[in-house]
Design a binder for these strands. Structure first.
Length: 506
RNA sequence: GCCGACGUAGCUCAGCUGGUAGAGCACUUCACUCGUAAUGAAGGGGUCCCCGGUUCGAGUCCGGGCGUCGGCUCCA
């Protein structure tokens, strides 16, 4: 209605007192507060009988807007603070033409089709169910994908001087008190208590204390450093119900975690090592992550001098590597600043993936020391790092990144063999065995369905290669169809194996 | 956790103002033995999220819980 009238917005600059008096008279407490806290002159925009504060700029009138759609309704805390009352926010979007609006809605629909929450079950990778909210059930195909990531993590860690360890899942309450997590995160931990008892232990929500205890279990020399403990362990965080989100925010978290114990002098090289490692991994998946440096929070451990040093070390590393980064003021962990890698999901929402944290506090809390060359005890620094972040979240982003059509080295099924008719079943199964023996992931679809139907299904499952096997084929000349391709290509078995092997990053 | 919406078959969804549940795909069986994106027919399958209330009667109305979705807040 407003659009049809072609109403205009009128801009007015008025004095603070005048504005205040006006909104008080209108019974608009929120606008009064904005007037009180705004900087500079007060600018008002009036449209019909509605007047609001806005720094501007604004359209002069509504005539260019030809298409409008209200897209959502949501609660939002006044000034973004949970302690304040919640207001209703109405989301809408406007375009110059109806066609633009339609195109926008179509893009949105397309993005939704590539949402990992839809693709995951469709591709038989995982599912979620009420029996354990926030904890994915990984199906065989999803587990194949997971294990490709695990293998990558393990082999690269090995190559880069990490040592694989395994630490307990449950720790006595006193451990969490030492680390400071009991104080800060008890409410989000899964606690362990006997019948009618107060909790005396908790499931680990992160690996740090385990690795601290491991380091502290023996005498350490400066000659042992840097000591890089790696562990891909199951963590549990009792995330608030309203925050769970497919694979991107879960309660059952698996991090590709590591803790590097090092001397002050070794910090720079270790941070470089992490940044380079992260760059290697993200390049591998064609991902372009955004870096963010998060600095000291209000409830930090330690003093400002320590934080000046740790923040400075991270900042220097980013700058020496010429990496562009944003700064999240006060967003750091309570024990240290961090460099986070952020990625966007299919709907444009940002998620924290990898993290590299420099910690001068935990080792002190746990009383860790090593013997220096000067025959004195020193407290080590610790670099906490998870580069993929959580495997759950990484897989979710990966699904969306490729819209489910994984590059062949990641694809759960790389080759599907389709026998044309019953008579070709045995030969197809043998071919599948040969592919398997060559190290490929292959299967056979010998269901009693038409060939067209089975090709369609393979295509919907986004399988990279389909081999049709009938009377005309031999292992020297197979009919190979590429995902998304038109028509077929003649390839030998060896040619296909070589081509797929060539696609693997290692 | 907060605000709002939603919860029906394995999946996607329909079910009007309360009268005892339906489609497509998937699955099973039978026929067809098939050459590059859906062969045909028949059949099986549901505590309508859970608990309580109103009512002669609840998938439908009301309350509580759980879960999901969109935001917010949080995220070691």
């Amino acid at each position: 209605r407003e659009l049809a009238e072609g109403r205009s917005w009128e801009r007015a600059e008025i004095g603070r007192d005048e504005a205040r008096a006006r909104f008080e008279a209108e019974g608009e407490p929120y606008k009064v507060e904005l007037v009180d806290t705004a900087e500079g002159d007060i600018t008002l925009y009036t449209q019909g009988d509605f007047t609001d504060l806005c720094r501007g700029p604004h359209l002069q009138d509504s005539s260019p807007i030809k298409a409008l759609k209200l897209t959502g309704l949501a609660g939002a805390y006044w000034r973004g603070d949970e302690k304040n009352t919640q207001l209703t926010r109405i989301y809408g979007t406007a375009f110059f033409t109806q066609a633009d609006l339609d195109a926008y809605l179509e893009r949105l629909e397309h993005a939704r089709a590539n949402d990992h929450r839809r693709l995951g079950p469709q591709l038989d990778l995982f599912h979620l169910q009420d029996a354990s909210p926030g904890s994915p059930f990984w199906h065989p195909k999803g587990m194949t994908l997971w294990n490709v990531l695990e293998d990558l993590r393990r082999s690269e860690n090995h190559r880069r001087g990490y040592l694989e360890v395994k630490t307990p899942l449950i720790y006595d309450k006193s451990v969490w008190e030492t680390s400071g997590h009991w104080e800060k995160f008890r409410g989000e931990m899964f606690l362990v208590a006997g019948e009618g008892e107060e909790p005396h232990a908790g499931l680990k929500p992160m690996n740090c204390p385990g690795h601290m205890l491991l380091f502290g279990s023996g005498l350490r020399s400066y000659r042992d450093l840097p000591l890089r403990y790696a562990e891909s362990s199951t963590l549990h965080r009792n995330e608030p119900t309203g925050t769970l989100h497919g694979l991107l925010r879960v309660r059952h978290v698996t991090q590709d975690d590591a803790h590097i114990f090092c001397t002050r002098e070794q910090i720079e090289d270790e941070i470089f090592g992490c940044l380079d490692y992260a760059a290697y991994l993200y390049d591998l998946f064609g991902m372009d992550a955004r870096f963010e440096l998060s600095t000291r929070p209000d409830d930090k451990l330690g003093n400002d001098e320590e934080w000046d040093f740790t923040e400075g070390a991270l900042r220097a590393a980013l700058e020496k590597r010429s990496l562009a980064y944003d700064v999240g003021v006060g967003e750091g962990a309570f024990y240290g600043p961090k460099i986070d890698l952020h990625m966007k999901d299919v709907l444009g929402r940002a998620w924290q993936m990898g993290t590299i944290q420099l910690d001068a506090q935990m080792p002190k809390q746990f009383g860790l020391t090593y013997m220096g060359a000067d025959n004195q005890e020193h407290t080590p620094y610790v670099v906490h790092r998870a580069l993929l972040g959580s495997l759950e979240r990484f897989t979710g982003i990966l699904i969306e990144q490729y819209a489910g059509a994984f590059p062949v080295w990641l694809a759960p099924v790389q080759v599907r063999v389709l026998p044309v008719a019953d008579a070709h079943r045995d030969a197809a199964t043998e071919l599948c065995g040969a592919l398997d023996a060559a190290g490929l992931r292959a299967d056979v679809d010998d269901r009693v369905e038409t060939l067209g139907k089975r090709i369609r299904d393979a295509e919907l499952q986004k399988i990279p290669y389909v081999v049709v096997w009938g009377d005309r084929e031999t292992r020297e000349a197979m009919a190979v169809r590429r995902r998304g391709g038109e028509g077929v290509e003649t390839m030998s078995l060896d040619g296909l194996v070589d081509e797929i092997a060539g696609e693997s990053p290692s």
